[in-house]
């Protein structure tokens, strides 16, 4: 193998595959050998620093409850979101309910009275002067008709 290792061959190496031609190449090519050794070192350092850092983040004092299920954590945003939504719904429903209660509901008898008043007003309005004689002939209770007929 005269050329240097390809990206795929190097990736295979780090994935754990050891091909004979790659091993042979590494014995003779200082450049590829150095490249692999350097990246290997970088990965090793990455592993070390991640492990060290996560150990610092780890709190062994945190209780793990297995028998009674996952612990309820007040710091879970989902709980807060659900609680806020529930409270908002309750407040909304109660406000809506009380608002509807306080709103005056028109009574049907009152509405009827108003309507009758309007009708009366229409009927009893003054007619134009030329129509006045006609109005005298018209009686809603029939008294005028009876008087005219002499009954």
């Amino acid at each position: 193998m005269n050329q240097h290792l390809t990206q795929d061959q190097i990736a295979e190496w780090f994935a754990g595959e050891r091909r004979r031609e790659v091993l042979d190449h590494l014995r003779h090519c200082a450049q590829c050998s150095d490249e692999i050794a350097n990246f290997e070192k970088t990965l090793w350092q990455f592993r070390g620093s991640v492990r060290e850092w996560s150990s610092e983040q780890f709190n062994p004092a945190t209780q793990i409850q297995i028998a009674s299920g996952p612990k309820f954590s007040l710091f879970r945003p989902a709980w807060w979101a659900a609680a806020t939504l529930a409270v908002a719904l309750l407040v909304g429903v109660s406000l809506n309910h009380s608002w509807r209660k306080s709103e005056p509901i028109p009574q049907s008898s009152t509405a009827d009275a108003v309507l009758l008043e309007q009708v009366d007003e229409q009927i009893s309005r003054t007619v134009p002067a030329p129509m006045a004689p006609l109005m005298e002939l018209v009686s809603y209770d029939g008294k005028t008709d009876q008087a005219e007929t002499g009954q």
Binding site: V50, S54, Q57, I64
Partner: peptide, 27 residues
Amino acid sequence: RLKVFRFILVSLRDREAAENLTQDCFF
């Protein structure tokens, strides 16, 4: 526990979530 916590922590980069999911994992 530490191994599971570490994997979750490095994957999510959120310590609080890592603690909660570690609990969930063992449960």
